[in-house]
Structures are given as structure tokens and as C-alpha cells.
Amino acid sequence: MKPELTLHGRTLTLQRYPVRQNETLQAWDAADEYLINTLEASTQPLDPARPIVILNDSFGALSCWFAPHGNVTCVTDSFIAKQATLANLQDNQLPAVNVIDALADLPANPQLVLIKLPKNNRLLTWQLHQLCQALPADCTVIAAAKAKDIHTSTLKLFEKHLGETKTSLAVKKARLIFCQPNPALAKPLPQPLQWTVPEHGISLLNHANVFSGESLDIGARLLLEHIPVRTDLHDIVDLGCGNGVIGIKAAKLNPQANVLCVDESFMAVASCLHNAQANLDNPAQLRAVANNCLDDMPAHSADLVLCNPPFHQQNTITDHIAWQMFCDAKQTLRPKGQLVVIGNRHLGYGDKLKRLFGNVTVIAQNNKFVIYQSDK
């Protein structure tokens, strides 16, 4: 796949992150192109003194395109998207962009907001509330997505939480949403959802973009019953931690161990840290960081890795993240360390683990999920 985006006499070299050999997917899509073409055709000049805000830029295509136009702030809940944006800006020798996480305050008095629709409507609703509080009435707001992902309910969310809304015609199966901010609709930000897992004595707070943030997913429920308990466990990693429920339970069961929770979502990390404070007698037992799997983790530094891998990146279904998680876990584990993985039966993680570790054991399963263990 050629990584060049060429439009309006400009060419950008754009890579997905992490960079893989023989990449088959682009770092931009038709919705990015539609946004760029629409703004380039506009007769309204951009004011270099007023910010441009870009939300949910998957790999930095929009940030790179608009970086020369003025003061750009990229808002993302994805560590991977942040790293991709920074790398693509550098590779194209473009001006710096202010990259902030989705919980940070927006810049004052923006002139233009571009939104790539997130998969999660809870995150979209939260962001529309945030925008309505921050945007002046003369700000231009344009959202973009695949046409099949823009529903009547999507438009109603914009109407309800931000302002008058209309849509474009579809081009290359992408569509735009135009919204006029109405500051009179401003309301307090939605509070994070909170619920309990009474059988494990855990209460959980979930920011808007946390995976399975409305209830405990059935995979995690099964894994909670099969977390190893051993006095020789000193360092445990919860890889893809979400709200931290697995890492918190591991910490409770193994009070002698240090637990590191890792997720690529900044909202997940914030939720996990809050939940550690709320549920652990010694919250310092657990750390949480945003990262791309276990990048830059010291080799031979963990005795146990617990993992519930995602099988999508942004809107793309893929197994390369799971494979990277397994490879990173093997490098991070000490000799005789264990990787415990839960996955849907149809994903076939057992074959991957057997190929990588040379061994795999099924330690539990139900009609939908399988828990595997591989020893280093």
C-alpha cells in the first residue's frame, strides 16, 4: 500500500502506527479526503490567530493537512493515534500541532472543529457536550464518517447537544455532518458511569470511551474467576486493562505483587487509576499507563501477564494487535513466567500462542470464550 495522499497539489506521506512491513491499510480514508476537499473548496479564509480543533484523527492525516494553516489542536483518546500524528508530522516536516487527550480542556475561541465520528456513541455524546460548552456561535463544525455509520440517531445527537444539523450527499461512501453551535444548549458534562461487581467487592467508574463501560463484559467476568494466585508473583501486567477490573482483582488476590495496567485509551487509564484508589487497601500497588502494548517495557520484568486483546483498531477488524500483545508479553515475561489470555472461541488464539511459546493450555472455557495459558 503506497502511503502517499495527494490532493490539491500537495502530497503527504502518511503511515499507520505502529509501522508494519507490507502494510495493506491506509492511514487515511474517504471521510478524511471529503473533509479536506470541502475545506479547500471553501471561500471562507481561515484566521491564523484562532485555533483549529480536530477530534479523533485516527493516524494524523487531518492534523498533517491543516498544520500549515495555523494553530491546530488534535484531541484524541488514543495513545496510538497520538504517536501516529506526531510521527507523521515529523516525517512530513510540518509545523507542530498541540496534541491533547480527550479529558483535557479545549482551546478557547476556535474557528473550526473537525470531527471523525468515534465508534462509541457515549464518547461522541461526551465530546458534543464538551464542544457546546467551549465553542463560540461563529465556529464551523464539520464531522465525517462512512455514510453507513451516520444514522438518524447520530444527527439527533448533534441536534440535541450542539446545534442545528444537516448532512451532505455521500461521496465515495463517506458523508459529512454540518452543525452550527448553539451555546444556549450548553449543559454540564455527563458524569462517568459507575457500577459495582458485588461478587468481587469491586466498584468501577468508567469514562466515556472505556471498553464495556456500561457493564462488566462476559469475557472479563470469566477471567476474574481464573486469575492465578501465587506467593511467587512479584510483578503482574494487565495488558489492555480498560477500567482496570482485572488488574485490581489480581492485586487483591496477590497483595505482595506490583501490578501494572496498560491501555492505549487515556480515558481507560484515568478510570483505572480512579478505581485503584477506590478499591485497593494500598493503591500504590497498582500503576496505570497509556502505551502501545508493551513498547519499551524492560525484558524479563514480569511474572504474569493477563490479557484480553481487542480485535479491532479504530474501525478496522484486525488480529495484529493481539499478535503484538502476545509477542510483547513473551519478551516482558521472566523465564517460567505465564501469559493468560481470554478470547472469543472463533479467534483461534490457541494456535498463535502455541506457535509463539511452544505450549498452550486451556484453563477454562464456556460456549463463547476460552482462557489460554502459555508458559515461557
Rank of each mutant, 00 (worst) to 15 (best):
N254T: 00
D303T: 03
H346K: 09
S301Q: 05
Q26C: 14
C132M: 07
A96D: 12
F266G: 08
S301W: 05
A30Y: 10
S63W: 01
K156W: 07
Q191P: 02
E264G: 09
Q83C: 05
A147D: 09
S212H: 00
G240D: 01
L25V: 11
V141W: 01
E225L: 09
A174Q: 02
R50F: 09
A329H: 01
C74S: 13
F66M: 09
H312V: 03
E225C: 04
K148D: 15
D232P: 11
H300Y: 10
P309F: 06
A208D: 04
I36H: 06
N88H: 06
T43F: 13
H312M: 07
G348F: 11
Q93C: 13
H151N: 12
T38F: 11
F79K: 03
K119P: 10
L131P: 03
K249N: 03
V171H: 11
C261E: 02
C241D: 00
V340C: 01
L117C: 02
V19I: 15
N209Q: 10
Q130R: 04
D319M: 08
T24K: 15
D101G: 08
T76W: 06
L25Q: 14
H69W: 13
R10H: 12
N92W: 10
V99D: 04
L253E: 05
E40W: 15
R355D: 14
L193F: 11
K146F: 06
F79M: 07
Q90C: 06
I342G: 02
P309H: 01
N37D: 15
D149N: 14
R287V: 00
P3L: 12
H320V: 11
Q191M: 03
A143G: 09
D29H: 11
S301A: 12
V362C: 10
T316Q: 13
A208Y: 03
V229M: 13
L86Y: 06
R20P: 09
T140K: 08
L306R: 00
T140W: 04
P118T: 04
H300W: 07
P45Y: 06
Q338W: 11
Q180L: 12
F357W: 13
L304P: 04
A250R: 00
V171Y: 07
V305E: 04
L233F: 06
P68A: 11
N206L: 03
L103E: 07
D105Y: 10
G244W: 02
T154P: 10
V305Y: 00
I36E: 05
K376H: 11
T332H: 06
Q277W: 03
N366M: 13
Q44M: 09
F79T: 02
L306T: 00
P18Y: 10
